[in-house]
Every structure is written in C-alpha cells, then in structure tokens.
C-alpha cells in the first residue's frame, strides 16, 4: 500500500487529500499520472455552491486499466457535492464520484432529471452512493455486480464523518488526447465557481505604498537619503584628496 498526503486550496477552502492505493497494481509513474488526473477532475468537478450533478467521463479512446480511491478530508464541511457515475459501456466503469453526506440530494436530483426507469448501472450507482463506507469496504456490492467483477478492492480507505470518497480511474491515455469530456449539467454556479477559481489563481500581490502618509514619508526619506549620500560623497572626496596629498608628502 502506498499513501499520499497533499494539501491544497480550492475556492478559498483548504483540503487534505489522502490517497491510498495498491502499489502492487499501480506502478509509481502511473500513480503520479492518476493523481494528476484525479486532481484535474477534482478541481473541475468540485462545486460546493452547486446542487447540480456533474458528469464527466473519459472518451472512448481512453482505456481503463485500474481503479483507485482517494479520501478527501475538507478542513470544513463542504455543503453539497453531487457527482455521478457514468458507465460508458456496460462492462466498464468510466466515472468518478464523491461519496458525501448529501447523497440523498443527489439521488433526488437524478430522479428529477430522468423520468425513464433506471438502468442496471443506475441502480448500482444508487446502491453504491447510498452505502456507508463500512459496507463499501466489504467489496461485496462491486463484486456482486457482474459487469464490474474485474475491479475488486476498489475502496481501501475509510471516510471520516465530514469527508467524502473520491473514486478515480487509472487511464491509459493516448498522446495529445484530452481524456475527459464534459457531459453537461454544469450549472451556473459551477461556471461562477470556475471563474472565481481562475481569478483566485491570478491573484498576485503587488506591494506598494499603503497610504498617502507612508508614500510622503518614504519619498521624504529618499530625498534625505540622497542628500546625505551627496554630502558624504563630497566629504569622502575631500578625505581622499587629503590622503593622497599626505601620501605624496610621505607623511
């Protein structure tokens, strides 16, 4: 087992990202790639102010190699995080989700959006999302679900009371291929959140005078400084001349 512990800040909130995954199945380089992918997904999908679910799924050119889970512990409770699992094909698990305390709300959102009867994968997802962590750790649900039997031991970490679980995929990415495409459901709040995030990224402190008093004081200091330097340079020049005169006289 290999663990990571990363701290980062999103929309002004600090998070600790603790990932646990099997090092036997995931080589170090792949692990790093996965963390990058997961973080991209995380940044893109985390919308604390939105109640709209967001679906992201890999393009068909991205092949899934394995799964791993990351435990996310926000420094403070995140209000609502609603995420979706997308099965690209029935035999593949092409999505990610956050297991949060707001699962019920997510289910409600999904029901409101879709009037069609849920498919197998949707039922599976509901089960998973509504499970508590202890049950998930038993691996039963995933292994019992026939089409997912090739992905055992998905969940390896325990979620804290205020935490959520992040399930991500190890993808075999083809060069220059954007592995993810948005499937919509990106609410206005999410757009706003992204803009705020972008603005936050560009925030650069440009130091300068804090007030007019400080500005005048510093300008006055600069004038005084250069005057003093001028006077001292004059005195030094005189002293140098005197020293040269004394040296020539052999004193």
């Amino acid at each position: 087992m290999k663990s990571i512990d990363k701290k980062f800040k999103i929309q002004g909130k600090r998070f600790t990202l603790t990932g646990i995954f099997s090092s036997k199945r995931i080589p170090a380089l792949s692990g790093r790639i996965m963390i990058d992918i997961c973080f991209f997904l995380f940044i893109f999908a985390l919308t604390p102010s939105s109640s709209s679910p967001f679906i992201a799924c890999p393009k068909s050119s991205a092949e899934i190699e394995s799964l791993f889970s990351l435990q996310v512990r926000p420094a403070e409770p995140v209000t609502i995080q609603t995420f979706w699992i997308k099965f690209h094909e029935r035999d593949k698990f092409n999505g990610f989700f956050f297991e949060t305390e707001s699962n019920e709300r997510m289910e409600k959102d999904r029901v409101l959006r879709s009037s069609d009867p849920p498919e197998d994968w949707q039922r599976f997802m509901e089960k998973v999302m509504l499970l508590d962590q202890a049950k998930i750790n038993q691996d039963k649900i995933i292994n019992d679900y026939l089409s997912l039997s090739k992905f055992p031991e998905v969940f390896e970490s325990e979620v804290e009371e205020i935490g959520c679980l992040y399930l991500a995929l190890n993808l075999n990415l083809k060069e220059k291929d954007n592995a993810f495409e948005s499937m919509g459901f990106l609410g206005e709040d999410q757009e706003k959140g992204k803009k705020e995030e972008a603005e936050g990224k560009e925030e650069v402190i440009r130091p300068g005078f804090r007030n007019i008093k400080e500005k005048i004081s510093i300008y006055a200091f600069l004038v005084w400084l250069w005057l003093v330097i001028g006077v001292l340079l004059y005195i030094l020049n005189e002293q140098i001349k005197e020293a040269e005169r004394r040296r020539r006289l052999g004193l």
Partner: peptide, 16 residues
C-alpha cells in the same frame, strides 16, 4: 522602493 518584489498565488502541489 520603486520596483518592489511581488508575490504570486499560493502554490498548488497538484496543479499543472
């Protein structure tokens, strides 16, 4: 004073 050093946004270890 006239060319003070700025400060960028906090580093994000997971960001590209």
């Amino acid at each position: 004073i006239f060319l003070p050093r700025g400060l960028g946004p906090q580093a994000d270890m997971m960001a590209p």
